[in-house]
Design a protein around this nucleic acid. Structure first.
Lengths: 125, 125
DNA sequence: CCATTGTTCAACCAAATGGTTGACAACCGC
DNA sequence: GCGGTTGTCAACCATTTGGTTGAACAATGG
């Protein structure tokens, strides 16, 4: 799980972290600030932030003793690109399937649903 | 990690599983078929499929001895909705920040970047 | 300069994850 | 029915994850 896309997905797989990200879309927050709503130790929140930071989802600067956490929203694009790419391919395929089904109604009642397992590639991540 | 959104994100946090999903956008595949490109046991692939299935990303039917795996692309929407929702909020906020900065140039050189930590909601997952 | 505030580091623990091997269930073809 | 295919289940193992507590570190404000 070493590439960034994996880290981003993994980071958002946790509800607490997702909630933190959600709150950070409204405003930057300090760690204490962020930790307040959750029933876990401050240290646990600190760990969550580390995960988010390593995924590139947040950055931290320094401001007096505080360590304001800032959302880096561009990383969302990484996911969106991946998702949209494959969603589109899936949709195209369904469209093609619909076309085939439509043609099967026109043609003679042929029956061969061997699902054409010819595809063999591996482009992802 | 009990809600579906968490399960979907977690499922896609693994590059092998992401690759499987990618290939399934082109066509349905049997388990053996899916396992072929990877250097892991068939059982490991079976486990990955279980994860994808529990996330609602794939479904399996039965066809003789084979167990064709089919992508359920609608689940992508779950993620897209979440991502777009918060991306939009983040963008609005940056727009607002830009406006503030623009006004600060017009006004007297006021300095108060207290990051307004008033937000306190918890809408996520 | 030192007490306070804010945050992280270290060590530890239980549970989950991703992998293995071995057994076996279901089904087709013969 | 027997043997080959196809896939899952079970038990096991190492690593990671998410949490804990206690101590340490970093800057600020008196």
């Amino acid at each position: 799980m070493t590439d960034q896309l994996s880290r981003v997905f993994a980071a958002l797989a946790d509800p607490t972290r997702r909630d933190m990200v959600a709150r950070l879309t409204e405003a930057d927050h300090t760690v204490n600030d962020l930790a307040a709503p959750y029933d876990v130790s401050l240290q646990a929140v600190s760990k969550h932030l580390k995960v988010l930071e390593e995924a590139g989802l947040v950055s931290r600067t320094r401001e007096a003793q505080r360590r304001p956490v800032h959302l880096e929203a561009e990383v969302f694009d990484l996911m969106t690109k991946w998702i949209e790419r494959y969603r589109r391919r899936a949709e195209e395929r369904f469209a093609a399937l619909d076309a085939v089904l439509a043609q099967m109604q026109d043609d003679s009642p042929n029956r061969d649903q061997s699902s054409t397992p010819t595809t063999q590639e591996g482009t992802a991540s």
